[in-house]
Design a protein around this nucleic acid. Structure first.
Length: 674
RNA sequence: GCCACCGUAGCUCAGUGGUAGAGCACACCCUUGGUAAGGGUGAGGUCGAGGGUUCAAUCCCCUUCGGUGGCUCCA
């Protein structure tokens, strides 16, 4: 990784250094990045973190020996910030070794927003240790010491870490057998090995904070020993750190577990770890999602089925799930000694439905959908609200088709999923292609064919994708659809998998036009993926303000005083009659109080009736964002709210219907909607 | 599953080796108020569960269950 000090160029030749703005500085002798910065100006000199010579990052102390383009890196550059974070990890090492000399340092890389360091130590670190480490780091920064870099021969580096008992560093050296030299960075008595670059002085590291303590496996392997990982965040400016901490706080406010509680959507409890107790409001949202997907799938030619939740173990042996996932399956024994399992996937049930009765090529493709609830014994440590549960509902479907139909079916699925995400407001969707894993069924020729089919579908549609080698399912390759939410987080939701293994294993077939029995190809696809998870993502994406068509309560009618309660009840009935999910609030409270409460409940529309409205047969409307929509006649208000709470697919369907009518030259009055 | 931390009223959280407190929510009363919190009174807890130490445990120790943050995993 490190190059030896390059051979000095002849000293009499002048060195021309081109700066980013195009100016050229000429030096008589080789100069370091820091010296060039000093020549440009004292302000820049103080802020020099590192340099970039001909596009390659180097340390401020590194010497330039021939003509080159140089960019001085300061804390304001993105690279400068990364270097600060990386050096913060070394500083952490310095503090840890002073406080706990027996600790052995492992690796300390940069991550998003910060850094971490993995450490092996005889006892667990405590939060108090962490506070002490942070305190020591601040003391070391205050010493304003220079970080000294030295490119060192392999044998010398190994001897140094050997003498210091840093056996993990020795293992890292072994991992790089072809490196004759390594970069050593000295923080006073502490030495770390790194490809660099690093800051020249600890004064650059002032804005940091240790954030959390966690366990992590050596080399990321759960079978290896566990190390202790200390996470930190670091910035070039105090303002950036504050903004970061505020961002974390914002994300916490959007946390679906918190909002689920506040909005009365669902809860979890010990009696059923990893399982959701849906409250009426949360279940309303869930039902809207199913209803939406049902409409979209019916339109797209799917047939909905339902398969058993508990099936014989032999079925799971046949499908391969038992072999691969038995530890993660819920099983039960019956009195007569049968071994049964709760379904962890819907596909075997679907296959049995397909296999029931003879299928002709004329029947294909068969698009068989199922809102199946699957059960997986997920590791306790990975459970996380609605986002990772042990019992969840998939908007699953299996498409049985001929190999010739496979391409068109894949494209239809991709088009459908992208359209659905768009209707939910997710415009930024990335696609990943996961190919054959180590542990797989079927021969390579089949995998070639199936991976090729997915590539062909994507490329045929002109869609970019990212390759994810070795990440496919054991029975086939898959596409994964990743959407980006309102605050920039990525969520993997839908998948499309192509499979010739299960049809083979289960011996399913169809009669082709030549009268021969042939194997269909099977496509597995889920678009929301887990409905529980998707609900959680929607809650976080919208910070609880679900779009009006999904909101559990779409409108609340509020009375100013008790006197107006009968009118408020009538208006509520009127809205319900028009298909809205409406409630009334006639509590003996001031209007300001009721507005506040319903707003905090994220009810999209609040309708207020007092004396004026009762007398005039009107209603005053406002939104949860505080926007005053004015006073409307009741009929006008109903029409407005019906339109504002319409599901997005109804709009699309309405437009399609209009176009069809125009083509047929007929005039059908618009349907009354939901 | 592994590492660390946490578990007190419906919710958010104080607190102590001598069997507990606040705010909000809830119930009742007063108030009938026009767009983000009107006032009063009251009820409410096996201090996650089991075991140990102690005259005495919500508090200290062990075990266990659950949660949180990571790691690993995610058909």
């Amino acid at each position: 990784m490190q190059t030896p000090p390059s051979t000095p160029a002849p000293e009499h030749e002048a060195i021309r250094i081109t700066l980013p703005d195009g100016t050229v500085r000429v030096f008589d002798t080789p100069v370091s990045v820091a010296e060039v910065a000093r020549a440009i100006g004292p302000g820049l000199a103080v802020n020099t973190v590192a340099g970039k010579i001909d596009g390659r990052l180097v340390d401020a102390c590194d010497v330039i020996r021939r003509d080159a383009a140089l960019q001085v890196i300061t804390p304001r550059d993105e690279e400068g910030l990364d270097i600060i974070r990386h050096s913060c990890a070394h500083l952490l090492g310095h503090a840890v070794k002073q406080l706990y000399p027996a600790a052995r340092m492992v690796i300390g890389p940069v991550i998003d927003d910060g850094f971490y360091y993995d450490i092996a130590f005889e006892r667990p670190f405590t939060p108090q240790d962490m506070a002490a480490i942070e305190q020591r780091m601040r003391e070391l920064i205050a010493q304003d010491y220079e970080v000294i870099k030295k490119i060192t021969p392999r044998a010398e580096v190994a001897a140094l870490f050997e003498a210091r008992g840093e056996d993990y560093k020795l293992r890292l050296i072994e991992d790089m057998p072809d490196e004759p030299f390594f970069g050593l960075y000295r923080h006073q008595e502490y030495v770390d090995m790194c490809r660099g670059p690093h800051v020249p002085n600890t004064r650059f590291l002032k804005v940091f904070k240790l954030t959390k303590l966690a366990g992590a496996y050596w080399r990321g392997d759960a079978k290896s020993e566990q190390l202790q990982r200390i996470y930190g965040t670091a910035w070039s400016d105090k303002k950036d750190l504050d903004a970061y901490l505020q961002r974390i706080e914002e994300a916490e406010k959007r946390d679906h577990r918190r909002l689920g509680k506040e909005l009365g959507l669902f809860h979890f409890q010990e009696d059923a770890p990893g399982a959701v107790f849906w409250h009426p409001k949360g279940w309303t949202v869930f039902r809207q999602l199913i209803a939406y997907m049902r409409r979209r799938q019916e339109e797209a030619g799917y047939l909905e089925v339902n398969s058993p939740d508990v099936m014989d173990r032999s079925l799971w042996e046949l499908s391969g799930h038992w072999h691969n996932y038995r530890d993660h399956m819920f099983t039960t024994e019956t009195e007569d000694g049968r071994s049964l399992a709760l379904k962890p996937m819907n596909c075997p049930g679907s296959v049995l439905l397909y296999r029931h009765g003879l299928k002709s090529y004329r029947d294909l493709p068969i698009r068989m959908s199922e809102f199946g609830k699957v059960h997986r014994y997920e590791p306790s440590g990975s459970l996380h609200g609605l986002l990772r549960v042990r019992h969840f509902t998939q908007d699953d479907a299996h498409i049985y088709c001929t190999p010739q139909q496979m391409d068109a079916e894949c494209r239809d699925v991709v088009a459908l999923v992208l359209d659905i995400y768009r209707q939910f407001g997710f415009e930024d969707v990335r696609i990943k292609l996961s190919t054959r894993p180590q542990n797989r069924m079927g021969d390579d020729a089949t995998w070639d064919l199936l991976e090729g089919a997915l590539v062909q579908a994507l490329e045929g549609m002109g869609l970019p994708y990212k390759l994810n080698p070795g990440e496919g399912a054991f029975y086939g390759p898959k596409l994964e659809f990743v959407l980006r939410d309102a605050i920039g987080r990525d969520w993997q939701c839908g998948t499309l998998q192509v499979d010739m293994n299960l049809p083979e294993r289960f011996g399913v077939d169809y009669v082709d036009e030549d009268g021969q029995r042939k194997r269909p190809v099977m496509l597995h696809r889920a678009l929301f993926g887990s409905l529980e998870r998707f609900t959680g993502i929607l809650i976080e994406h919208h910070a609880g303000k679900l779009p009006a068509w999904l909101a559990p309560v779409q409108a609340v009618v509020l009375s100013i005083t008790e006197e107006h309660a009968p009118y408020v009840h009538d208006v509520t009935l009127l809205l319900r009659g028009a298909g809205l999910r409406a409630e009334c609030d006639v509590r003996n409270e001031k209007i300001g109080y009721k507005i506040r409460e319903q707003t905090l409940q994220r009810v999209p529309f609040l309708l207020v009736a007092g004396g004026k409205e009762c007398d005039a047969g009107t209603i005053a409307l406002r939104t949860r964002d505080g926007e005053d929509l004015g006073v409307m006649q009741l009929a006008q208000a109903v029409a407005y709210l019906k339109d504002a709470t319409q599901a997005p697919d109804f709009y699309a369907r309405g437009e399609a219907q209009q176009q069809l009518c125009a083509r047929l030259g007929i005039d059908i009055p618009a349907s009354s909607g939901a």
